[in-house]
């Protein structure tokens, strides 16, 4: 089942994979950045959590992209 999924997503070569990965990156940065920004506003304005959230978002979206397209 998992193979079929990966197969569908990779069907038309690299361009759609690229769009998927861009979507993941955008989603990761937005959601974890927003959570970090919220914590910053709650605790006081020092922006450390915002930076941490963005980094975490990039990391998790790359991990997700690897799960979807890189893993065998």
């Amino acid at each position: 089942m998992e193979d079929r999924k990966v197969d569908i997503l990779n069907k038309d070569g690299k361009i759609t994979t690229l769009f998927y990965m861009l979507g993941f990156l955008l989603a990761g940065v937005l959601i974890w950045g927003a959570i970090g920004w919220g914590i910053d506003n709650w605790l006081g304005h020092n922006n450390y959590f915002l930076i941490g959230g963005v980094v975490l978002g990039i990391g998790s979206s790359l991990y997700l992209a690897w799960l979807r397209f890189g893993r065998k």
């Binding site: 979507g23 955008l26 989603a27 959601i31 991990y63 997700l64």
Partner: peptide
């Protein structure tokens, strides 16, 4: 880490992009 990310991808990022 991943659940909110996937959720946002399906419901917001896809139509937006």
């Amino acid at each position: 880490l991943l659940a909110p990310l996937e959720f946002l991808t399906y419901f917001a990022i896809r139509p937006l992009t």
